[in-house]
Design a protein around this nucleic acid. Structure first.
Lengths: 260, 260
DNA sequence: CACAGTAATTGATCCGGATCAAAGATTGTG
DNA sequence: CACAATCTTTGATCCGGATCAATTACTGTG
């Protein structure tokens, strides 16, 4: 939370409305695992929100905030990828979540960030000073409801993350992870032909709870088995959809086809 | 979600206000890991809420709802312990969370429960039909804010759960789990002398992602090393606080005492 | 109090992923 | 274009937890 690169600091109206603010999903009407049906704020509400927000930019690898720092603002990501992580005293990092366009950044407790956040790519975001935001929230019930929706979404996401982690075999972990990325990509309306990995192998490992080596081996095996094609570090293609889904879905048991 | 055991069905005012409704914690001002500083609704708000809610009772081992069923109501637990879990096609269960007094039950997507829920002990809960609740929410900004707080709390809880799961050694997992129970107990104002385990060893394993055997072995080792004392299946006492905390805290590294 | 049913412990074996080290591939930079 | 720095792959070994089966505690019930 050092220097905040305000884009046209203080500008009320962003030059070109970078991306809808507070893209949420209805908690009782939602979509696919990982990818949620979005329901946006109306223009009126967005206008009000942008009145209290500014647009900021973070360069690749820039730290957005560190765990333990006092919370002065939260962010709604407009573009780019952010990782939210925590560091054990022994120096190892665990990534709690990757954040993409539309995601909210800044979970905290005792007025301090619970996680550290770092831009993985260049990032633009809406910045909401929490004092202003909080005042605003109380006045706009509809907006509050939106935040609720967003939080429900993140809660479900975090639950799935836990499921992912609890998986024992590396192949399944990677398959699920790729599936997640794919669905998130689709949800953002990006091409679904290739899966784009903004993060490196180490970070993938830190997210799915695998060592770097295990991640690498898993990719190799998936490629060997012609389930995926590793076009390059950052781009993966699904070769064998059926096999892929079989790995990613929790059904290991051939009998499951019949039962229920 | 078969038969709902309404207590005095339709009663507007619960006989003796079982427990505060919607006990939440402020997202920007909170407490210990696992245990949160609570901030309650005022009487006025509670009264309004109880107008749309009824009190229901579930007996031990009763299924409250199954994943996939349409959501008709959500619950705020007044007393007892509930587990929220999902079942893989292969029949194995993963427990996403244990819910105690004050917790909200009923996360859903596409209008259907994402998890199954079962009472571990006898349970009483406030039941909110979602139609009514949703209408009510929109009208009470302050209440919405409370829900936001509650959700933030659960989100943090879920993150810690992921951290717990990602731990590789069984001892640490069990220690963290016990610590969690202890702090939740303290947060509810119950005695902190002994830790009460409402769930059995299998369920502990399903929560921390360990096999039944590993759970058992971990308890044994902890007892052997005189870190804890297993008074009986359901009651644990901390013998060696320092050693216990050392296991539960992520610091494996003696140097960490100095650094930072 | 004995019995049945369930929960928990313990033992033996096996395997997948962690770990550490070394080599190979990519990317960016002057 | 070559070099450096980083990221990734690959290999070899080791260990902790999974698994399965058998035994031993509990708990509640008549």
């Amino acid at each position: 939370m050092n220097r905040v690169n305000r884009v046209k600091s203080g500008s009320r109206k962003p030059p070109a409305p970078v991306r809808p603010i507070l893209h949420a999903s209805h908690p009782w009407i939602a979509g696919h695992p990982w990818k949620e049906k979005a329901c946006q704020l109306d223009e009126h509400q967005q206008a009000r929100l942008s009145a209290i927000s500014s647009i900021v930019r973070f360069e690749k690898r820039q730290i957005i905030h560190r765990a333990g720092e006092p919370v002065d603002a939260i962010y709604n990501i407009a573009s780019g990828v952010v990782k939210s992580f925590s560091v054990d005293p022994d120096g190892s990092e665990r990534i709690n979540t990757f954040l993409f366009a539309g995601d909210l950044l800044g979970l905290s407790e005792e007025g301090r960030f619970t996680n550290s956040a770092q831009a993985i790519t260049a990032v633009t975001a809406h910045r909401f000073p929490i004092a202003k935001l909080q005042r605003h929230l109380h006045r706009e019930a509809e907006l509050e409801f939106h935040v609720i929706c967003k939080l429900c979404q993140e809660l479900r996401h975090e639950q799935r993350h836990a499921i992912l982690i609890s998986r024992r075999d590396a192949l399944a972990k990677i398959a699920i992870f790729l599936q997640m990325l794919e669905q998130l990509q689709a949800g953002r309306g990006e091409s679904t032909n290739e899966i784009h990995l903004a993060m490196d192998r180490t970070e993938i490992g830190e997210y799915v709870s695998l060592s770097l080596g295990a991640v690498s081996r898993a990719f190799r095996k998936l490629a060997e088995d012609a389930v995926i094609e590793v076009r390059n570090r950052q781009h993966i293609k699904i070769r064998d959809r059926a096999a892929f889904d079989r790995l990613a879905d929790p059904a290991d048991d051939p009998v499951a086809t019949f039962s229920r």
